[in-house]
């Protein structure tokens, strides 16, 4: 009984749980449009600002967003970005990559995406970008239908035009 054993320091208990997520009513509408290559936003009924994507309510005013969708351009402006050099098991991208916040033309909220066809030394705030879509036969109900954004070649947007979105 008195025989000393090594203390147990690590016990591995794999936890596997399956979840079935619902996109929700408004995200479903948005995803069905993305499946067709369309980017749909919706207006807040209080201040008319266009949410992309709409999540069913305006977080600022706490009111449902139910009006007609607004179709947006697939061009926009990088309002801010970071260059990521940290591997993550959940992200399937080659390092390093630029994670960008894009303000699409016609939208009043930004989305996170990736920058492609551009050296990471050239990425900057205010840079104008356009979406590069995957081939149509690969489209699914996902924003990954846009492979990445690439520089559009237009002149940079002035800081004042997007600074309130950072």
């Amino acid at each position: 009984m008195s025989e000393e054993k090594e203390p147990v320091e690590v016990l591995r208990t794999p936890v596997e749980l399956d979840y079935t997520y619902s996109a929700g009513v408004s995200a479903s509408r948005f995803l069905r449009a993305v499946e067709q290559g369309k980017l749909l936003g919706q207006r807040c009924p209080v201040d008319g600002r266009v949410y992309f994507p709409s999540r069913g309510s305006c977080p600022q005013h706490g009111v449902p967003i139910e009006g007609e969708p607004v179709e947006l351009s697939d061009r926009g402006t990088i309002v801010t970005f970071s260059v990521n050099r940290v591997p993550s098991e959940n992200i399937d991208l080659e390092l390093p990559y630029a994670a960008i916040q894009v303000l699409l033309d016609g939208a009043d909220t930004t989305l996170f995406h990736v920058l492609g066809e551009c050296s990471i030394d050239d990425v900057r705030m205010g840079m104008r970008v356009e979406a590069v879509w995957r081939p149509r036969d690969e489209w699914t109900i996902s924003m990954q239908n846009i492979r990445y954004f690439k520089p559009s070649g237009e002149p940079d947007a002035p800081f004042e035009s997007y600074q309130e979105h950072i």
Partner: peptide
């Protein structure tokens, strides 16, 4: 099973209704 609505969407009408009932704003 709320197959179509996410949690925020389940909550929105519940909060909206209580604000209406009481006349309270944020």
């Amino acid at each position: 099973c709320e197959a179509n609505r996410n949690e925020t969407e389940i909550l929105i009408p519940v909060i909206h209704e209580i604000k209406q009932q009481t006349g309270l704003a944020t």
